[in-house]
């Protein structure tokens, strides 16, 4: 399978990742190789197999739904490279 430049650009946009024209070319060939290799999984019969997204089988791990103060609100806010106003991060216009 071969990914077109437009497909690569579309994926990059979905991922909110700016990429250069050179990267479009590089990724279209590398991603094509990797995904073609992944196609070999088609050989495995997975009919009636339940997919798993975790590996230890733990179920419904619950904790008490209490309100807790954040220990480090100020430190966390200070991490932001954006301006802070009334404990909120101020970002650029959406449009």
């Amino acid at each position: 399978m071969k990914l077109t430049a437009d497909e690569v650009k579309h994926i990059a946009k979905l991922a909110r990742l700016g990429i250069t024209d050179e990267e479009v070319e590089k990724f279209s060939s590398q991603l094509s190789d990797i995904l073609s290799h992944a196609k070999m999984l088609e050989e495995v019969d997975t009919e009636n197999v339940e997919p798993i997204a975790q590996i230890t089988g733990l179920k419904n791990v619950l904790f008490k739904d209490d309100k807790k103060d954040c220990e480090f609100t100020d430190e966390l806010l200070k991490q932001s490279p954006q301006d802070v106003q009334d404990n909120m991060l101020k970002v650029k216009n959406v449009f």
Binding site: A15, R16, L17, G18, I19, T20, L76, Q79, S80, P81, Q82, L89, V91, K92, N93, V94, F95
Partner: peptide, 23 residues
Amino acid sequence: GVKYGHTTDDAKELLEIYMKSRA
């Protein structure tokens, strides 16, 4: 590029912050 870490200094709108900071 908003909550922590590197952010671009070349953005006019929010989407550009994401795209460029990550790039």
